[in-house]
Amino acid sequence: MSDLLDLAIVIPTFNEKGNVPVLIARLDQALAGVNWEAIFVDDDSPDGTADAARDIARLDRRVRVIQRIGRRGLATACIEGMCATAAPLVAVIDGDLQHDETVLPAMLAALKDDPALDIAVGSRFVAGGGTGEWDRDRVAKSAFATRLSQRVLDVGLSDPMSGFFMVRTAVLREMAPRLAGIGFKILLDIMASAGRPLRFVELPYVFRTRSAGESKLDHVVAMEYLIALYDRRFGRVIPVRFAMFSAIGVIGVGIHMGVLTALYVVLGASFLLGQIVATAAAMTFNFFLNNALTYRDRRLRGWRQMLDGWVSFCVVCSVGAVANVGVAAFLYDFRYGAWAISALAGVLVGAVWNYALSSRFTWGRY
């Protein structure tokens, strides 16, 4: 076997401690005769995933660890790992053992045998592939997401949602500055960010059932997928973070108007009191939803961070809140009771302040 490094396998992880030694053993068996390295990119897992990988790395120099502090997200983890190797080819495989590592030699052979190919993709939806033991609901959701991505981005893949692929490192490095790094579907990002249509081959594999650890799939992941599609289609016109913040702000307007209506119209409270309470309610709602969605990659966790973040959010938005209440009260007096128009004008004045200041002082400090 040549001393030259042939292949790097990037493994993004979060709370996968029990799967680390099993995956290394499987890679060792599947890639016999290949000079490879495994790069675990761990988002500071509380279960000690990074330490488990380091324990193996002390004995096996093919194993490396990148432990990210204060940064989260599968896509960005993959980008960091892929840019950290000197190997000419780099693969991405999940750390949960659900991808079939025995397909890696076929991916490697395909790229070595055909210099015109840019990427080899493990596909569940070509002949010989499959989704394993997925239930009907998950199959339907995956099929819908696949059709949506094919229609929006037109990348030509039968399985654009795949997280299992191998790409030429030079191709990846060239496009790295253009990658959005949003969500869990790094393959979509790569295919949509290339300056030219990438030449690809799809190889079948059957998706396995997770045997250890917890699934990372949730409703926020689904939301991130839609955000990623938006970013690739419209992100250059309106940045995705601002679009998310604005969309949540629109929902906050509904919260604001609902609270104000309840206090002012139903309960007969003064307009000024109703406006103040409604502003505080909308601000609190916006903080928690922005923390879960808009700033998921910087998400505040634990009651201390959450409390500090909420207080910070309220403080940095206080200028906008004062302007909100002041403008609304002025217009209410000026318009002789046009409370709805006055309230909406106040909300709009505070919105720009809220975004600019919270981006810097609430989620920009961690």
Rank of each mutant, 00 (worst) to 15 (best):
T169G: 10
R236W: 07
S312K: 10
E16R: 15
L331V: 12
N35C: 13
T261H: 11
W353P: 07
V259R: 00
F125Y: 13
A176W: 05
M244F: 04
Y225S: 11
D28P: 04
N35M: 08
P204L: 03
D43F: 01
A30H: 05
A127M: 11
G252R: 03
G95S: 09
V201R: 10
W353V: 05
A91Y: 01
N19Y: 02
A243R: 03
V139Y: 12
R208I: 08
A120E: 01
A86Y: 08
I11N: 01
G156K: 12
I9Q: 02
I248G: 06
D42Q: 06
F288S: 08
V322I: 13
A340Q: 15
S342W: 00
V220Q: 05
L179S: 05
V20H: 02
L172E: 03
L31A: 03
A321E: 02
F40G: 03
I251P: 07
E202G: 04
R296N: 10
V121T: 04
A91F: 00
A32P: 04
A8I: 04
A91P: 06
R199A: 13
G181N: 06
V325G: 01
A281S: 15
S2Q: 12
C314E: 10
D218M: 11
G252L: 09
Y355M: 08
I255P: 00
T146N: 09
R64L: 13
Q275N: 15
R26T: 10
L148N: 08
P204S: 07
T102D: 12
S45A: 15
D28M: 12
L23V: 12
A109S: 14
D308R: 12
V206Q: 03
P115A: 14
M175F: 05
L172N: 04
L104W: 00
L5R: 10
D308L: 13
G33K: 10
D96P: 02
L344P: 04
R68F: 06
V327S: 06
A52I: 02
M166H: 07
A280F: 11
S270E: 11
R296V: 02
G130C: 02
E80Q: 13
Y295G: 01
G48T: 05
A53I: 10
L117E: 08
L157T: 01
L267R: 14
I93R: 01
